[in-house]
Structure formats: C-alpha cells, structure tokens
Design a protein around this nucleic acid. Structure first.
Lengths: 231, 231
DNA sequence: ATCCTAGAAATGTGATCACAAAAATACTTA
DNA sequence: TAAGTATTTTTGTGATCACATTTCTAGGAT
C-alpha cells in the first residue's frame, strides 16, 4: 500500500488511541481522502499514526459497523465503491431520517441555537464562494447536526451520521471532477421555519435541501458522475 | 460481576473469534439475557467464552456502534436502560425504515420467498401458542428480515437491525412480566399484499404490524411496563 | 455507627509476539 | 515467452504482558 493520506488531527487529552484512530480515519473517509476500492492494511494505518495494530483494528471494526468500510471475504478492508442504486437509496434514506430528526428537534430549538445555525450557514457560503468544497461539505453537515442535536436524545442521530459517512467519500471525489459542486441552500428556508417553530415547514426545507442538488440528479447523470469519479 | 448468561452458539468453520463473540453477545442482548444497566467486563466475557480480551473488545466496539451497548465515561460498558422517549422513537423509526425497506423489496419478491414467509409466520404462531415468547420474537424478526432481504442491496438493513437490537432487550424483559406479550400479526395481510405486488398495501401492513401491539401502547402504559421491567 | 483513607484487587488499554493464511515475488519448466 | 510452482513477504488474528486507572475492601478516626 502507498503512503496513507491521513492528516494529523487534534487529539484532546484523555482520548484513547482507538478513539483517535477512529476519528482520524473517519475524517479521511468522509472527505474522500481514502479512495474507494483501495485496500487498507492494519499495520499500514498503525504505522501512519505511530501506534499499534490493536487500537487500529478496533477503529476499523467500528467504522465497518457504521457502514464506512466493508470487510471482504479475504478479510481485506476497503471503502466500498459507490453504485447508482446505493447512492439513490442513501439520498432517500437521508430524506426520511433527517425529516424525522428535524421534526423532533423543533420543540427544543432555542434562539441561541438558531444564531449558531445562521453563523454556520454564513461560513458555508463563504467556503462555497472560495470554492473550498471540502470545507463546505463539512460545514453543511455541521449545520444539519447543529439542528438535529437540539434534541439531545435522538436515537436517529447515529443513523444519520452513517448515511453521511457512506455518501461522503463519493461526494468528496465528485467535487474534484465537477468544477463547482452544485450546493443547494435551503438553509435560509429552514431557519425561517425554525423561527416560527413550524415543524412541517422545517421538514419540507430539510427534505428539499437533501433531495435537490446532487441528490436530485437524473439517474443517468449520477451514473456519469460515478464513472468520472472512477467508481 | 456474576456468571454471564451466554449460551454457547453454533460456530461455523472459519468464523473468527471476534465474529463469534459478536454474534453470541448480540444474541444474548437481543433476547434480554444481559440486563440493561448491568456492567460488562471484557475479561469476564473473554473467560465465559474461553478466549482473550482482544477479540472480545472488537466485538464490544462493534456492538456499541450498532447501538446495542453504551460506553460510559468511566469506560464501563452496559446495555443502555430504556426510557419511554427512546422506546417511542425507536418504534417510530422502525415504521419509517421498514416501510422503506418493504417497498424496495417488493419488486424482488419471488413465490419461493413468499412460501418461506408463510412458513416463518406459521412457526411464529406455533411459538406464540406454546407461549415461547423469545422464539416468537426471533421468528418475528426473521419474517421481517426475509421480506426486506429479497432486495439484496439494502443500505437500510443495518439500520433496521440496529433498531431491533435496541428494542430487543426491553421486549425480552417485558415478556417476563407480561403474561402474554400482545403479538400483533399483520403478516397475513402483508403476504396477501405481496402476492399482488402492491407496494402501498405491503408498506401499510408492515407499518401496522410495527405500530400496533406493544408499539401502540399509551405512553403511560409504556412507562408502567418499563417500571415493571426495572428500567 | 459513619465517614474517610490506604492498600489490594480488578479492569481497560495498548504494545508485542507467534501463528496461519493470503499475496507477492522469484524461479522453473514447457 | 507464458504458465505454473515454490519461496518469500506481507497481512490478519488472537493470546499475553505491562501499565495506568478505577473499583473494591479493610481498617481506623471522629
């Protein structure tokens, strides 16, 4: 295996090695630094982050349970390749799950949190303006996460994160091939609906945000994009 | 910690130790053999299944990513306690996810698979008749799984399994306190709809199957049941 | 009796090692 | 030259050990 594209990451005091490995790998997978199909080796990762196989294996197990990695029959581990079918199911699932999460968050929304949402949205617009697509992608997730976690006990949250994690890699790669990733911004709409505590309107805005843009592409366009991305 | 209620399990040739540990723990959690709140120790489990900490830890990491276990701040690991809120969200999520899964399965349904569904349903009725609630619970899952996996590439499947895994323990315990678990059987209805390849009717039957019965209890009844179950 | 503290036991964590299987490489043969 | 085979290397897996932290248990002081 070649050198692993693993940017070092801030490591808070008291964080265990396997937790750190999990975060670092997750981040790399999310933005497409690890190519789908490229096989990962435990020792390679351990060496790249100057630790040992044991905690790395734990991180890999977690990531495969989260849908971020796939373990093949020969026990090789890789980021799964994307298919048009899988892509459209993931978009559809995001719609279902995130409408549910958004509705359940509305009663918990505070003005302070709405302010944070506005701030994140502004930062995302900036990132888009300077064509920093990776940052924009992460800030988009940050926006959605900030909304849903207004309700602190959302069982759905790990499922949402799993969907993001499965979509992330191919979006990350697609961004390298499409000059400008077509970001839809229904965030303003969602914020307005939040101010009115209008559950239906919030859910509608979130669904539109997810399903339009890259998620609303024709099937043939998706297949074309995947081909470009080498999937 | 006391002796662990871990029934030995069939171990196919070539199955790794951590896979085996994962399955065995999963099974035990699913039917409520491991009490929510009771803290698990890595060494205890390893000893109970005559292996060592390393593979057990991998199994525990996977299970916590699947929502079956929770890792506390003191790094203690336990089956999470159920709350009325969590319970009703899980039921609601099951409805969303499994309607989605059922719809996507319909185009792939074969007569042979419908026959299997009929067979599973019959076995479940038998189990209910002889008041073997645990078997009935597992057969009910088997029925749903058999339906959804008609479509071999369902991204939603792990999420469905996660919801089952989170609901399982409390159902397993509730069954010990309620003389007869109120099983709803909308399976016949689902089967009839499948024969007609009627997506809407299948989804409706599945949703009814999930939301009625224990999932449709009044909130106060749920709280009462949880109290009985020591949650 | 209750609370507090010091020692002991138990526990999570991660590095290392040995082993078996898989992959890669080198070598031989047709 | 190409295909097959033997050898070497790489890799996943799981047991074991050492260390730090937590939890449990006595013993003592108030």
């Amino acid at each position: 295996m070649g050198t692993l594209a693993l940017e070092p990451l801030d490591r808070p005091e008291g964080m265990t090695t396997h937790e750190y490995a999990h975060r670092r790998l997750r981040q790399a997978i999310m933005v497409g630094s690890i190519r789908p199909g490229e096989s990962l080796t435990i020792r390679g990762i351990a060496e790249a982050m100057e630790s040992s196989p044991t905690p790395v294996r734990e991180a890999l197990r977690r990531l495969s349970s989260e849908g971020a990695l796939r373990v093949l029959d020969n026990r090789r581990i890789m980021v799964p390749r994307m298919t048009a079918d899988r892509f459209s199911e993931l978009i559809s699932l995001r719609g279902l799950l995130e409408q549910h999460a958004a509705r359940r968050a509305v009663p918990f929304i505070t003005e302070r949190r709405i302010d944070k949402l506005v701030e994140i949205d502004r930062a995302q617009d900036e990132a888009i303006a300077r064509k920093d697509n990776t940052t924009a992608l992460l800030l988009n997730q940050e926006f959605h996460r900030m909304l849903y976690t207004a309700n602190p006990e959302q069982v759905v949250m790990p499922m949402v994160e799993s969907a993001w994690l499965q979509l992330g890699p191919v979006l990350g790669i697609a961004m390298e091939h499409v000059a400008q990733l077509y970001f839809v911004d229904r965030h303003q709409e969602a914020i307005a609906a939040l101010r009115k505590r209008d559950e239906d309107a919030v859910a509608a805005a979130i669904n539109a945000d997810i399903c339009e843009g890259i998620g609303g592409l024709e099937r043939s366009a998706i297949e074309n994009l995947l081909r470009l991305a080498g999937q």
